[in-house]
Write a protein that binds this DNA or RNA. Structure first.
Length: 254
DNA sequence: ATGGCAGGAAGCTCCTGA
């Protein structure tokens, strides 16, 4: 089973890239973030023609999450139960016995801003909800843009990024707390190297200069972690024409 | 050096992203 996550930064702009990538990669399920489309504006026909059914929760201009699957999606749920949030950041469903949670964690903008406080509060609610979801679903995968680089090896210049949003101690602690409920960082099950980045700023020629961060993650429950045989970051899509600033991350399960 | 780039909505510029 091949699971993937990709922050596509506007599904309207990136639809051609998504369709060609689906054809090339043929993942079983895909989590998308930042569709930037209102829920009914999802390009269902095109995605269905590519062989996928989909669920989507979106809004104008910002946020928006979707799950695509080659097999039926069941038990679809939008948002974090018990946490009211007008921002469309979470959608989940079951695929072939695996509970899939697609998440777009708030960016945080700047440490000590209102958006940063919202990010930490949001992560608290998300973690508490996932803890309960984990009790209900033994095979659980959380995929998405976490907007947190967990460790120094996940940042091209950890010295410059120390204390900055995406790499501050409080955010990294929140990520560790999330793992603490019983989730494993899939990429680190199979790869221990540094410079395994998933996002590069559009500015400053950052991609070509290797100035990236690893902020998109696939987290697996214990039982799924035992099935994880490979995790890849698809840098080809970041190098492509008119790219998203994020690369897809792909996990292959037995 | 607080720049740079991209997308969206609005509208000849600003907000947000990370």
């Amino acid at each position: 089973m091949k699971l993937a996550t990709w922050n596509i930064n506007s599904l309207k702009v990136r639809l051609p890239q998504l369709l060609s990538w689906l054809e090339r990669e043929r993942p079983d399920a895909v989590c998308l973030q930042e569709t930037k489309l209102e829920t009914p504006k999802f390009p269902e026909q095109e995605v269905r023609a590519a062989g996928y059914e989909a669920i989507h929760a979106g809004q104008k201009t910002y946020n928006g999450v979707a799950i695509l699957s080659r097999t039926p999606l069941t038990g679809a749920l939008v948002g974090i139960s018990g946490y009211s949030d007008p921002q469309q950041r979470v959608i989940s469903a079951s695929v072939d016995g695996v509970r899939i949670v697609c998440a777009y964690v708030p960016n945080g903008q700047a440490v000590d801003s209102d958006k940063y406080r919202y990010k930490l509060e949001w992560l608290g609610a998300f973690t508490a909800w996932l803890d309960a979801e984990l009790a209900r679903h033994q095979s659980l995968a959380v995929l998405g843009d976490f907007n947190i680089a967990p460790e120094e090896r996940d940042v091209y210049d950890p010295g410059a990024w120390e204390g900055q949003v995406l790499f501050s101690q409080a955010e990294r602690q929140a990520f560790r707390t999330l793992l603490g409920i019983g989730l494993l960082d899939a990429l680190r099950l199979v790869e221990q190297g540094d410079r395994l980045f998933t996002w590069w700023d559009y500015r400053l020629n950052a991609f070509k200069r290797g100035m990236g961060l690893r902020i998109d993650h696939i987290l697996l429950s214990q039982s799924l972690a035992g099935r994880c045989k490979a995790v890849r970051i698809d840098r080809e899509m970041r190098a492509a024409e008119r790219p998203s600033d994020h690369a897809p991350v792909i996990a292959e399960l037995r």
